[in-house]
Write a protein that binds this DNA or RNA. Structure first.
Length: 237
RNA sequence: UGCUGAUGGCGAC
């Protein structure tokens, strides 16, 4: 019974729709469908495959809904840019009787960011704090690009300060997210500073830096940096 | 100190 969720998870990763549906059928036939782990991995599977209608239907018919499958569904709507349903599902949480956790919040922030609903991503980030949660690395690297796209330099600087204070500065994803954010806010200096403060060289950070430099019309500088890094044996795209 | 499910950046594809 513990292998089903893993199998379904693999189908979701591969977008193997047919196989996933077969596994779904098998779980029904074998009577394992009521297992919360099986069910939520199925919800996640349908979400990943963009079958939100099926995902929602499954969710509504579940015997044992919990915070995990609820998070998966809400995040799925957010990632699709379906603001109405995302918020609707997210706000249903009280009626369902459980509480969002850090992952639930992160899923919404990341989803809104990926679908270009930047303002909503930032608002969710604020709400998360108002509800007494602390952001982790995932929340921060999800919200930073949204802040950058909105040009909210003040918020970005605040998050940067928080990153330094909490020691998240060693996280590669966060560093490149910071570089990306400063690049979008047209702060070439801060951007380069973050890059240099990073002890080690990271491909992602380099990509963000070069993209940021080009955005400033500093294409030549970008090329120079590109060659420098190549000289150090970096494999860039 | 892990051991079935939901959440992360830039880029290439």
């Amino acid at each position: 019974a513990h292998v089903l969720p893993s199998v379904i998870k693999a189908c979701a990763g591969l977008l193997a729709v047919k196989i996933g549906k077969q596994v779904h059928g098998f779980s029904l036939a074998s009577g394992l469908y009521w297992d919360p782990f099986v069910e939520s991995s199925l919800v996640h599977f349908y979400v990943k495959c963009d079958e939100l209608v099926d995902a929602h239907k499954l969710f509504d018919n579940m015997v044992e809904r919990d915070v995990v499958c609820w998070s998966a569904l809400a995040a799925g709507y957010a990632r699709k840019g379906d603001l109405v349903n995302a918020k609707k599902v997210f706000n249903e949480v009280k009626d369902l009787g459980f509480e969002p956790n850090t992952v639930s919040w992160n899923g919404m922030i990341a989803g809104f960011n990926q679908s270009g609903c930047y303002l909503d991503a930032v608002l969710m980030f604020q709400q998360m704090h108002l509800h007494g949660f602390t952001s982790d690395g995932t929340s921060i690297s999800s919200v930073l690009p949204a802040i950058g796209d909105l040009g909210y330099l003040n918020s970005g600087t605040q998050v940067h300060g928080y990153v330094i204070k909490t020691g998240f500065a060693v996280d590669k994803c966060i560093v490149s997210a910071l570089i990306d954010m400063y690049g979008k806010c047209r702060c070439a200096l801060e951007m380069s500073q973050v890059f240099e403060d990073m002890g080690q060289v990271d491909v992602g950070a380099c990509n963000a830096l070069i993209a940021g430099l080009s955005r400033h019309g500093l294409a030549e500088k970008a090329l120079t940096v590109f060659k420098e890094l190549q000289g150090q044996g970096m494999e860039l795209n």
